[in-house]
Design a protein around this nucleic acid. Structure first.
Lengths: 150, 150
DNA sequence: TATTGTTATACTCTATAACTATA
DNA sequence: TATAGTTATAGAGTATAACAATA
């Protein structure tokens, strides 16, 4: 994009990424919200426990790049609704081992299926090679502190 | 992505798009916020008027796919800060012709330059062909009601 | 009756500081 | 002193209903 009179907002990358992200999230959001009353932070924590098994809040934070306050509140909600269990760590009593209850695992497995189908629906219109390259580029763009000090 | 035990959250498209969008927006957000005290909705309206000239709120809504309440509030803020002028439409007194003041145009031109440089910094690491394909795919993903009922 | 734009309200999401309890 | 996690608070972003003025 040049800097003069032909600026095209419609292809400005931050704008485009935001629009695509909003649209792509919509139908999945409706599912985790309507079926389980979850928020974004909550399904993310649920998925981390579903995929990796027992984790502490700290470990989830590292893997998900989520701030500890977000995790704290998401864990609280998931515990209230009996999707996860908290067990005080015997060797370091500041932290807790978090793991899914059977109910939490069932929710995770349901949502994992929905997510996989949704991902397939979103990417199905593109070639496999294009999708692979798209994911690579998005991973690179998601990485912090690339060239970005405009 | 398959639906069984190898679900990989890190490449789940809605998740990836969200992370990339957040990261890509960061530095530009800091500029329009710190220099002009603007919010997201406000720079978007500013850009529409800068690019297309005189528009009504309705026309901005159509082009930007923004709800009228967002536009109403963004226009109010931009008018307070003397970035735009409102002139009642003589032929339809329900709407107003919106246009940038000299101060608004100066802000737009400054931010347009920042945006173009930021876009170049974000995409500079990829080949021109990859960037072109990336924008095409994001435009397609941003389009509402594709296959999405997971 | 329908449309343009405004106001009220609530919910979601994010960011930061200050705090606790443990180490 | 530092770390794991919590609580409080505010700001940013989004969504919807109800409304006034005009067509």
């Amino acid at each position: 994009m040049s800097e003069k009179d032909d600026f095209d907002l419609r292809i400005f990358l931050p704008y485009l990424l935001n629009q695509a992200a909003e649209e792509a999230s919509l139908s999945f959001q409706q599912v985790y919200k309507s079926r389980y009353g979850m928020l974004r932070t909550e399904w993310r924590v649920l998925f981390h426990l579903g995929i990796y098994g027992e984790l502490t809040a700290k470990e989830i934070g590292t893997r998900a790049k989520m701030h500890k306050t977000k995790i704290s509140r998401a864990v609280q909600k998931l515990a209230e609704r009996r999707f996860l269990m908290r067990v005080r760590d015997a060797t370091d009593r500041r932290s807790e081992k978090l793991s899914l209850t059977p109910q939490g695992r069932a929710a995770y497995e349901d949502l994992r299926t929905v997510a996989a189908r949704h991902d397939a629906a979103l990417t199905g219109r593109f070639s496999a090679a294009d999708v692979e390259r798209l994911r690579e580029m998005l991973v690179a763009l998601a990485e912090p502190s690339q060239a970005s000090k405009g």
